[in-house]
Amino acid sequence: MLNSLHIEGASWLHRMGTGWKLFALFVISLALTLIDNLPVLAGALFASLIVARSIGMKERMLWQRTKPVLLTIAFLALVNMVLLSPRDGLVILLRLPAILFFASAVTASTSLSAFIDCLTRAAMPLEKMGLLRAADLGLALGLVLRFVPEIHERYRALRDAHQARGIPVKLHRLLGPLIISTLKDADSIADAIDARGIRGQKSRH
């Protein structure tokens, strides 16, 4: 149901460390935000397409993955062209898709587990400060992914029950039962986690 946007492969970007990739993406995005030179921005957009191709993402796939954001950008570029100047519209039409495609390339070349390892390591200093438990992140994300299909099934059952009784399916009628029936499981799930000692000794509070 929830397929990761990761694309398997062994390209140079796949082999690069996750932390470095995110750092590079941050630096490139910041630089592109500050640059206002049209030829440089056009070059960056071209480079982003080359990078995407080098990890096996064709333009068609990029378009599929970024369509809603690209349409928003196109609309805002149009607004800028009318309100400000054609140049102001063109700047964001080159700059923002370039940032978007670089970001898509990082997403596609990094596996879920590599991302979560990287985040857990980044959270370690916070754990030392006593703010959170770094391992909780993986646990919580695992819980979300585990329960999405189940809650979706529950939603469909509620919808079908309404339809079977001839009651029009309205969101405001479904939300209450859906949320209550889901959250009622929290106690037994929490007990199961604590009983297995997954969060260590002092897990209760």
């Binding site: 990761s4 970024t66 950008i73």
Partner: peptide
């Protein structure tokens, strides 16, 4: 937001990935 960042299409319309977090919205 973490799920979006790690590349899962969890937002409505199947949106997700770092691109959404770096876009205008």
């Amino acid at each position: 937001v973490v799920l979006v960042a790690v590349g899962l299409p969890v937002l409505s319309g199947g949106r997700g990935g770092l691109a959404v977090l770096m876009g205008p919205t």
